[in-house]
């Protein structure tokens, strides 16, 4: 009983050893470097994705090709709906070449699983989307995904 408070000054809190801290941080760093894909493209069109409640996640990012549709960020390029493929504005007629090029990057077994994610602004007219869809059909990119934000509606 009398052991408490025996000698107030003699006990000190031992200092925390931080020598392993860099190792820990490096471990996290390598985890991020391995799992993560860098932001590959800068957007030059502006779009707000529509919302939908029944969205599915797209698995296997390496198999996904993106088509961005919206209004150019640069006002000098006009305010009409345009399409961005690979960092530059493109026309609907360029889709076939683009898909062929993206397909050739994948190995043969994976080509049938290629998915095209259409990221279009919610105010786009369906005429434009339909033209894109027809072009994708001609290019035999039949798996598509209408990109949407998850939300209640």
């Amino acid at each position: 009983m009398g052991k408490f408070n025996k000698s107030a000054g003699s006990r000190e809190v031992p200092e925390l050893n931080t020598a392993s801290m860099p190792d820990l941080v490096f471990a996290i760093l390598f985890f991020f470097m391995v799992t993560v894909s860098m932001r590959s493209e800068t957007l030059i069109v502006r779009f707000t994705l529509p919302t939908a409640s029944e969205v599915q996640k797209l698995e296997k990012k390496s198999l996904v090709t993106y088509i961005n549709i919206g209004i150019p960020l640069d006002p000098r390029l006009g305010s009409a709906t345009r399409m961005q493929l690979n960092d530059k504005l493109a026309e609907v007629s360029d889709i076939q070449d683009y898909i062929a090029q993206e397909k050739s990057r994948l190995n043969e077994a994976d080509q049938q699983f290629m998915t095209v994610s259409i990221k279009a602004d919610e105010n786009t007219k369906m005429k434009y989307i339909s033209d894109v869809k027809q072009a994708l059909r001609k290019a035999y990119a039949l798996k598509i995904s209408y990109s949407a934000r998850k939300g209640e509606n």
Partner: peptide, 13 residues
């Protein structure tokens, strides 16, 4: 890095 995975309504043409 972009952690956000894309999501959408899948369709087959």
């Amino acid at each position: 890095s972009s952690m956000d995975t894309d999501s959408g309504l899948a369709r087959r043409l």
